[in-house]
Amino acid sequence: MDQPALTSRFTLAYAYKRSLGPVIGAFMTGLRDRRILGARTADGRVIVPARAYDPASGEPTGDLVEVGPSGVIETVSHVAQPSPTDPVQVPFAWALIRLDGADTSFLHVVEGSAEALHRGLRVTARWRAERDGSLRDIEAFVP
């Protein structure tokens, strides 16, 4: 008894909303206002994105510090053919970027081909016109 397999589309989706707390909230508010904020740790480093606690020591962080909006690529992972859910629809790379004034690297999108993007390249943030306080307020970094 060979019958065609019964298949069905099934979508599992959750419309999560996350509350941000004072420090990540300030970081997201900064993005909306076209500023990238880090937090200064007790030993004087600046961690980006700003976080309430220093992941190295567990100690509370102090002042918020504006960094970037330019920096240097530390590592790149190239995406030659973006999928529909990727943040941009041109060749790009996921990159760790050491923003000016920061002591940690920041993961974001850099537009450009595998030939164009490399470690050490200086890039700068391109802001979205419509911003709502999210990491996507930075459309991408560009050389």
Binding site: L12, A13, Y14, A15, Y16, K17, R18, S19, L20, G25, M28, T29, R32, D132, G133, S134
Partner: peptide
């Protein structure tokens, strides 16, 4: 900004 959407 106090909240953000993280749909899955």
């Amino acid at each position: 900004v106090t909240r953000f959407k993280a749909p899955t």
